[in-house]
Nucleic acid binder design. Structure first.
Length: 572
RNA sequence: GUCGCAAUAGCUCAGCUGGAUAGAGCAACGGUCUUCUAAACCGUAGGUCGAGGGUCCGAAUCCCUCUUGCGACACCA
C-alpha cells in the first residue's frame, strides 16, 4: 500500500528510457523506447538492455555502429556503467542506490509490499472446489480448490474482494438412489462414523443390485420426485447426507487450510430457475427444437444451448444461469470466475453467450479458468471405475514423508507434527500450483512426495534458514532506510525482490498462481546462492544491511507462499 | 467429421508482448558440512525446440499445412 505515496517503486526502466530519449529525439518517442527495453537473461549483460536492430534502416548504419554512437551521446551519470555489446546497449544500475531503495521499501511495508488497489474493492465471486455430496474428494478436486484459493489471495493482493463459493453438487437423481440404498442396506451409525465411505458403498451396491432388480430404479425415481416435492422424510435424509458429507469435506479443507465464504450448492438454486426460464421466454430467446427448449447461439458460432429437456426438466446450464443471475444481483461482480476443468471450455463459452444474450451486466467479465486433467496411467479418474486417488490419502502420505524427513534431518525440532503438516501439505499444494494450469498431470505419488529441488519444501527451507539467521542475530537490528549493500553476491537477490509487485499483477492478469510459485523458487534460489557464498553474520559495517536483506527475503518468501495457500514454518 | 488444448534434455517442466551461446529441477557422475539448518551450494554430461513451409534484420515464440496425444461436440455435470 502506498501509505503516503512515498513508497512508490522507482521505475528503473524509465531511468534507462530517459537516458536514451534525447539521443534519438527525432526517430523514436520516449514511449517506444521504453517498450523496446529488455531484461537480459544474464547479469553479466547488465540489468537492462536496448537493442538497436530496428534503427538500422532509419539510421542506415549497422546496429553495432548505432549502439556505439548512442552510448557516446547519452548521459551515463545515473548508472554504474553503460556498455556496448554488439547491437545491444547494456545498462548496469547503481547497485548501492537500487538496493537501498528496495530494502527500505520492503522493510517499511513488510508483507504489504506488492499490494496494489487496481481492483478498487470490486467483488469477485469464484466458483471453485465443488465436490459432489456422498462422493469422495479426489486429486481432481484438489486443482479447483487450490487454484481457486490462490487466485482469491492474489485478487486481494490486487485490491479485489474475492468471494469463494463452494458450488456443491448436492442435487440430482443420484439422491433418489442413495435414499433407496440407505433405507435398504444402510445404518445410521456407519454413516456417522465414516459418511463418505459408507454412502459410496450404498451407492455402489445400488448399481450392482439394480442390474438384477430394475424395479429399484423406479423406487429411486419416486424418492427423487418426493425430494423435489418437499417430502419431509426425503428432505431429512438428503439434508443429513449433505451435513455428514460436508463434515467430512471440511476435515480435508482444514488440512489444506482452505476456507469458503459460501456453500451455495446446486440445491440452493432450485427455486431460482423458474425465474430464469421466464426471463428467457420474455426476451424471446427460447426456441423449440426436437421437443426441447434451446437458446440459439449461431451468431457466436456455437451450438445451441439446451435449457429444458423434452420432458421439461432443467439441465446443468439452467442452474448455472440462475447462479450467474443470482451472483450478479447479490454482488454486482467486477469479475465472475469459474475454476473448472478444461474439459468444460466449450460449455462455458455457451454459458457466457447465453448470459450475454440475456444482457447480464457481469457476463462480459465472466472468466472460465480451466485447468488440465489429472490422469492415472494416462486415463481419466472416475469414481465408478475405481480409478480414483483420494486427496486425503495423498495428503497423509505426504505428511508422513515430511515426518520421516524431520526425523532424519532435524530430530530436535519443536512442533514436529505441526511442521510436518505444513511441509507435507505445502509440498502437495505447491506441486499442483507450480506448473501452468493447463498442463495435464499424470498422477505419480513418488513425484508428489519429492521435497528437493524446485518444490514447496525448498522454498520453505530457504525461508526457515533466513529466519534462523535472524534469530541468531537478535542483538543487531536490521537496517531500515539506509541499507546499502555493495556485496555483488547479493545483487541477484535484491533485484528479484524488486520484481515482486510486477509478478503480483501478472499472476492476476493471467489467472496463473504458477507465476507466483515460479517467482518464489527464483527468489529462494537467489537467496540460497547468496547464503552459500556470503557470511551474513560477519561483523562489519554492512551487517545491518545484510540482515535487512535477509529479513526482506523472509517476508517476501512467506508472502509468496501465502498467496499460494502454503504455510511457512519458522524452523524445519 | 468439426472445434479446442498440447508436443522443448532420459523423466518433469521454464522460456514474458519474437531478440544476444535454448534454461531449471529430478535422475547420472564428481566436488563442498571444525564457521549462519547439506530439505542446501558448486561442477560435468545431456536438445535437428513433433515435421514441413511462410513472415521478419532475427522465430521455441507469430501465420499456414501435416503428424501424434488428450478433450469437447444438445436432452450428464
Amino acid at each position: 500500500m502506498d501509505k503516503d505515496g512515498s513508497f512508490v517503486i522507482m521505475d528503473y526502466k524509465q531511468l534507462v528510457a530517459d537516458a536514451l530519449a534525447p539521443t534519438m529525439a527525432d526517430t523514436l518517442s520516449a514511449d517506444d523506447i521504453y517498450k523496446k527495453i529488455e531484461r537480459p537473461k544474464d547479469s553479466s549483460m547488465g540489468d537492462y538492455a536496448f537493442p538497436t536492430f530496428t534503427l538500422a534502416k532509419t539510421f542506415r548504419k549497422a546496429p553495432q555502429q548505432i549502439a556505439t554512437d548512442l552510448v557516446e551521446q547519452l548521459d551515463q551519470s545515473k548508472f554504474e556503467k553503460v556498455q556496448v555489446a554488439g547491437p545491444y546497449i547494456n545498462f548496469f544500475l547503481d547497485k548501492a542506490a537500487f538496493s537501498a531503495d528496495i530494502l527500505a521499501q520492503v522493510s517499511a511495508q513488510g508483507a504489504d509490499f506488492g499490494q496494489n488497489e487496481n481492483g478498487k474493492g470490486g467483488n469477485v465471486p469464484i466458483d471453485m472446489s465443488s465436490p459432489n455430496i456422498a462422493k469422495p474428494i479426489s486429486m481432481g478436486h484438489l486443482r479447483s480448490t487450490v487454484i481457486g484459493n490462490s487466485i482469491a489471495e492474489i485478487l486481494k493482493k490486487n485490491g479485489y474482494n474475492p468471494i469463494k463459493d463452494n458450488h456443491l453438487g448436492d442435487w440430482g437423481t443420484q439422491f433418489g438412489k442413495l435414499i433407496v440404498a440407505y433405507l435398504k442396506w444402510g445404518n445410521e451409525d456407519d454413516v456417522k462414523k465414516d459418511p463418505i465411505t459408507n454412502l459410496v458403498k450404498y451407492y455402489v451396491k445400488f448399481h450392482q443390485e439394480d442390474k438384477e432388480h430394475p424395479e429399484l430404479d423406479d423406487e429411486a425415481r419416486e424418492w427423487f420426485k418426493k425430494l423435489e416435492d418437499g417430502d419431509a422424510e426425503a428432505h431429512r435424509l438428503w439434508s443429513w447426507f449433505r451435513d455428514e458429507s460436508l463434515k467430512a469435506f471440511n476435515q480435508i479443507y482444514d488440512k489444506l487450510g482452505v476456507t469458503f465464504d459460501t456453500y451455495n450448492g446446486e440445491a440452493f438454486y432450485n427455486d431460482k430457475m423458474q425465474a430464469v426460464i421466464d426471463e428467457l421466454k420474455e426476451k424471446g430467446l427460447l426456441k423449440e427444437s426436437q421437443g426441447a427448449q434451446v437458446v440459439d447461439l449461431s451468431k457466436y458460432d456455437l451450438n445451441p444451448a439446451l435449457i429444458l429437456k423434452s420432458d421439461g426438466a432443467s439441465l446443468y446450464i439452467t442452474r448455472d444461469i440462475a447462479t450467474a443471475v443470482y451472483r450478479d444481483k447479490t454482488y454486482h461482480p467486477a469479475m465472475n470466475l469459474y475454476v473448472v476443468g478444461s474439459e468444460q471450455m466449450y460449455y462455458f463459452q455457451q454459458l457466457k453467450a447465453v448470459l450475454t444474450e440475456m444482457g447480464l451486466a457481469s457476463a462480459k467479465d465472466l472468466h472460465h479458468i480451466p485447468f488440465g486433467l489429472i490422469t492415472v496411467d494416462g486415463k481419466k479418474l472416475s469414481t465408478r471405475s475405481g480409478r480414483i486417488i483420494l486427496l486425503d490419502e495423498v495428503l497423509d502420505d505426504s505428511i508422513a514423508m515430511a515426518k520421516k524427513q524431520i526425523a532424519e534431518k532435524n530430530p530436535d525440532l519443536p512442533n514436529k507434527d505441526e511442521v510436518a503438516k505444513q511441509v507435507g501439505v505445502g509440498a502437495i499444494i505447491f506441486g499442483d500450483l507450480k506448473n501452468e494450469r493447463m498442463n495435464s498431470i499424470d498422477f505419480n505419488l513418488a513425484d508428489q512426495l519429492k521435497f528437493e529441488g524446485e518444490t514447496g519444501p525448498y522454498v520453505q527451507y530457504a525461508r526457515a534458514r533466513a529466519e534462523s539467521i535472524l534469530r541468531k542475530a537478535a542483538d543487531v537490528t536490521p537496517a531500515g532506510e539506509n541499507a546499502t549493500i555493495n556485496d555483488p553476491e547479493a545483487w541477484e537477490t535484491v533485484k528479484t525482490l524488486a520484481d515482486f509487485p510486477a509478478i503480483v499483477e501478472e499472476a492476476l492478469a493471467d489467472f496463473e498462481p504458477s507465476d507466483i510459485a515460479k517467482y518464489s523458487i527464483r527468489l529462494a534460489k537467489a537467496f540460497n546462492k547468496y547464503y552459500a557464498h556470503s557470511k551474513i553474520l560477519a561483523d562489519d559495517a554492512e551487517k545491518p544491511a545484510r540482515l535487512a536483506l535477509v529479513k526482506s527475503v523472509s517476508t517476501i518468501l512467506k508472502e509468496s507462499l501465502r498467496l499460494l495457500g502454503v504455510q511457512a514454518p519458522d524452523e524445519m
